[in-house]
């Protein structure tokens, strides 16, 4: 027999290869890639388009790249997580391809880890390309850039931010064995926590809750203070979607304190809207909390998914 009993790594890499080829040949993924690069291009070209339409001339902006978070934000994280992960377990069950795969002499844990690692590699490669594209594009469009050495922090932050969404997609896909539930369920969580949650948080003054759930988190202000027209300073989101930009801001402004407010609405006229200061905390707290939250959610959801997958019976 020509079978050599090679180690775990060979089998793990075989699963990674299987999954990577699936990812890069997926029409959904290629479409998402096109959208991401189109959005990045738009952010680079927006000022030129405005100028062409009669707007102000384009000025040099040495902080464009570092402030743009290399073109990545909450919704993009969710979309990439969905596109790279929604199929990795659920679609195998839906299509029946799980049958020949799990009949091979590879443990389910290896299959699970290989697929997860492939999703991570796909993300890493995509974000690297985007980062390089935005950095070179920013240099060409807005001139020499400041703090380019901090750009890799954006990449690290973006990966952390996406991992939490990957874990949620994986969890829903594995438990319900449905790609649709995985995709729409995750989108629902994002809409719930980011859009609806933020509005409720600011109005009810209970925004701190959102620090501990995935998404944009609580909204605060740094380097400013109260004014008759609302708080001044730089807006800061405490959530897991902002780990990259917060890491960069922390390195640039380590002494920042972030202050939170709520809005009291007494009527419909501007003077009846009141901003009430709630509390302040050091910026370092925000960074540590959001990274911890991302890691805990990732570990918990991935562990549950792994447990369910290990026990899953293939009735399809």
């Amino acid at each position: 027999m020509s079978v050599s009993h090679s180690g775990w790594t060979v089998k793990f890499l075989a699963v990674v290869r299987y999954e990577l080829l699936w990812n890069v040949r997926k029409k959904k993924f290629l479409g998402m890639l096109v959208v991401a690069f189109a959005l990045a291009t738009l952010s680079l070209a927006l000022n030129h388009i405005a100028y062409a339409l009669g707007g102000p001339p384009v000025e040099l902006n040495p902080d464009f790249v570092i402030n743009s978070n290399v073109g990545l934000g909450g919704f993009v994280f969710v979309l990439f997580a969905i596109v790279t992960t929604m199929n990795i377990i659920s679609a195998e069950f839906e299509s029946g391809t799980i049958v020949p795969l799990l009949a091979k002499p590879v443990s389910r844990t290896t299959v699970f880890l290989g697929k997860l690692f492939a999703a991570f590699l796909t993300l890493l490669a995509t974000y690297c390309f985007l980062m390089i594209y935005m950095t070179v594009g920013g240099f060409l469009v807005f001139g020499p850039q400041n703090n380019l050495h901090l750009v890799p922090l954006s990449l690290v932050g973006a990966l952390f931010s996406t991992l939490i969404w990957i874990a949620i997609v994986l969890f829903l896909g594995t438990v319900f064995r449905s790609s649709l539930i995985a995709a729409f369920g995750t989108l629902g969580v994002w809409i719930g926590t980011t859009i609806i949650g933020s509005i409720i948080g600011v109005l009810a003054g209970q925004g701190w809750i959102f620090t501990y759930i995935p998404g944009s988190g609580n909204q605060g202000f740094a380097n400013g203070g109260p004014s008759p027209f609302g708080p001044t300073g730089t807006g800061v989101s405490t959530g897991t979607d902002s780990i990259g930009s917060n890491l960069i801001n922390y390195i640039l402004h380590p002494s920042w304190e972030v202050t939170y407010y709520k809005i009291n609405i007494g009527g419909t006229t501007p003077d009846q809207i009141q901003w009430v200061r709630l509390y302040s905390e050091p910026f370092s707290n925000i960074i540590l909390t959001s990274i911890a939250v991302a890691l805990i959610y990732f570990i918990v959801f991935v562990a549950i998914s792994w447990y369910v997958f290990r026990r899953a019976q293939v009735t399809e």
Binding site: P100, K104, P105
Partner: peptide, 23 residues
């Protein structure tokens, strides 16, 4: 058998071969 449609026949056999630990 439902085989992953994103893979070519030869690729699929090669990858499954790796999973068997074949040289």
């Amino acid at each position: 058998p439902k085989l992953p449609k994103h893979l070519k026949g030869r690729e699929l056999l090669d990858i499954y071969g790796r999973m068997y630990g074949m040289s």
